[in-house]
């Protein structure tokens, strides 16, 4: 994998560290408020921030996922002053637990209905988690964004094609990884937030503005 020589120029260690803390704050608030909507306790890992090139992004993502495929991948993009993508990875079998968690199961379901409900649960939880985390992040940074509908893929190796087309091979992306665990439901997964190079400038400014309040 190419080590980005000038990565520090684009986004300094200092800025990475601020972003990490801002992520920590916004995700923490997000899950606390999420608990009001879905009755869950979520344990979040320390967010880790890396810079990768567009062409290495897919490999980088796959390397960071430590659960065995096949898995459920939910992909969603957001746009505004901050543009990017969220990828959420849930292990196989989680769709059943999530459907139960939402209380969506009904009696006497045929397999087709059941699959439809399970896919629905994954998409809905994905959409709400993305909305909560990204929503809070831009909220902390005093901005709003708009979202596209989530896309679900249940596969051994998700394609993750969309961002490649839009991010571009040569560009630099900020990749934030957080592991989360739905306590008491034995559901764990990954949350990746990817932003494109155009957002970098706004991001830096917003982060510095955030620090200025102290």
């Amino acid at each position: 994998m190419t080590i980005l020589k000038d990565a520090n120029v684009l986004f300094s260690e200092e800025e990475k560290s601020i972003l990490q803390e801002v992520m920590n704050i916004s995700f923490g608030n997000a899950v606390a408020e999420l608990a009001e909507i879905i009755d869950v306790l979520i344990r979040l890992s320390v967010p880790s921030v890396t810079l990768v090139s567009g062409k290495d992004f897919q490999r980088d993502l796959a390397n960071k996922i430590e659960i065995t495929p096949p898995y459920n991948s939910i992909e969603q993009s957001f746009s505004g002053k901050l543009n990017g993508y969220v990828f959420m990875i849930f292990p196989e079998g989680s769709e059943k637990k999530l459907t139960a968690l939402l209380g969506d199961y009904q009696e006497h379901l045929d397999p087709v209905e059941e699959t439809r409900l399970e896919k629905g649960a994954l998409i809905e939880i994905g959409n709400i988690l993305t909305g909560a985390c990204v929503g809070k992040l831009v909220d902390v940074l005093d901005e709003n964004v708009s979202f596209t509908p989530p896309r679900l893929e249940m596969a051994s190796s998700p394609s993750w094609q969309t961002p490649l087309n839009l991010i571009g091979q040569e560009s630099v992306v900020i990749s934030v990884k957080t592991e989360f665990k739905f306590m008491a439901h034995d559901i764990n997964g990954y949350f990746f937030l990817i932003t494109n190079e155009e957002s970098l400038h706004w991001f830096k400014k917003a982060l510095h503005t955030f620090m200025e309040q102290f």
Partner: peptide, 16 residues
């Protein structure tokens, strides 16, 4: 649930 989410986080909820 979806309305609450939008009210809380300002995201969009989709009913495709």
């Amino acid at each position: 649930r979806n309305c609450q989410s939008v009210l809380t986080f300002g995201n969009l909820a989709f009913f495709p």
